[in-house]
């Protein structure tokens, strides 16, 4: 763990030095979807911070959830002759024309956090996390933690049909398969919200003998876990001890819960998608190194041992 952290920080340090040396004077346009969630706001903040620390002139455009605004923004970036364009695409389809225009103008495009249904040669690379892997990391943690003891798991799914809900469920089930001591006894949607997370957890507790038959909770995002933790407390049980809590996203509030011993683990969906993107761009500009078509961000596991209060303080100011 320490070796990994040291390696990671060394890489970041090297990237910063390297980046600031060659990425300076670069002008990058960034078309952001909007600010529909705290995570998105944090991504915007971090992108601006990353650009500033590398001396990149960042032109920021907020699309307010509309693809037409993103296309307009990309066209205006092309007209301004920027050196590169970052896009967090709001939808997957309808990008071929504008991406071709960027390609014709020889401006590399990097996709952030989501991908598009377009030919791969129309963009330089995509920086995203692997949702299945996130679920897998959460599942592995639970398998290791219960260490062979029988354990009934309840699952709070994301919005029915959304790709994070499908993939995080899939990854978690993959990690659990082959461990017959772990069983998902109930699985319901909590719509990614605190209110529904709390309401659904209340019903789980009633349905499973007042919660005595539940050994762990897996929530597809931290907000539902925060709501469920309150429900567990109100039922007279101790979250984190009586019922293990593992979730995904790593928003600041879950670190407060972890510091209080009420949540056990969270898998980070890093809002720093721009850092790897800028690194790839700098290398590409310097000597034409073509990055792989998909740069996977790290899905880091945080537990109560990782000084949750310190992480909370770090994350608090990012606009989550």
């Amino acid at each position: 763990m320490t070796l990994k952290t040291a390696l990671a920080s060394a890489t970041i340090l090297a990237a910063c030095m390297f980046g600031s040396a060659s990425a300076a004077d670069m002008t990058v346009g960034f078309s952001q979807i909007g600010s529909e969630s705290g995570w998105r706001a944090a991504e915007t903040t971090l992108t601006k911070q990353q650009a500033e620390s590398r001396g990149i002139d960042l032109k920021f455009a907020d699309a307010q959830q509309k693809q037409e605004n993103q296309i307009k923004a990309i066209r205006s970036f092309i007209a301004q002759g920027v050196d590169a364009i970052l896009v967090a695409p709001v939808v997957a389809t309808g990008w071929d024309d504008v991406l071709t225009e960027a390609k014709d103008a020889e401006i590399p495009v990097v996709l952030l956090d989501r991908t598009v249904d377009a030919s791969e040669d129309l963009y330089l690379t995509a920086v995203t996390s692997d949702l299945v892997h996130e679920g897998n990391v959460a599942g592995k943690w639970l398998v290791d933690t219960v260490a062979g003891k029988p354990c009934n798991v309840v699952e709070l799914q994301g919005t029915t049909g959304s790709s994070p809900a499908i993939d995080r469920k899939k990854g978690f089930e993959q990690a659990l398969s082959g461990n017959d001591n772990l069983k998902i006894v109930r699985s319901q949607t909590g719509d990614f919200t605190r209110t529904k997370g709390k309401e659904v957890m209340e019903s789980f507790l009633k349905a499973e003998n007042g919660g005595k038959d539940i050994c762990a909770l897996y929530a597809h995002n931290d907000d539902m876990a925060v709501g469920a933790i309150q429900a567990i407390k109100e039922a007279g049980l101790k979250p984190g001890t009586d019922i293990l809590v593992v979730s995904i996203d790593a928003v600041p509030d879950i670190f407060q819960a972890m510091a209080a011993g009420e949540a056990n683990a969270t898998v980070e969906l890093t809002p720093n998608m721009a850092g790897p993107a800028f690194d790839a761009l700098a290398a590409y500009k310097k000597d034409g190194t073509v990055p792989p078509k998909w740069i996977q961000t790290e899905s880091k596991l945080y537990t109560q041992k990782d000084d949750p209060m310190k992480v909370y303080e770090e994350k608090k100011g990012l606009g989550y």
């Binding site: 719509d191 919200t193 605190r194 209110t195 709390k198 907000d223 925060v226 709501g227 309150q230 509030d253």
Partner: peptide
């Protein structure tokens, strides 16, 4: 009541 229930105001979902 909805905000007090989850100890927070969730403008997107409340």
């Amino acid at each position: 009541i909805a905000a007090a229930d989850i100890k927070g105001a969730d403008a997107n979902n409340a």
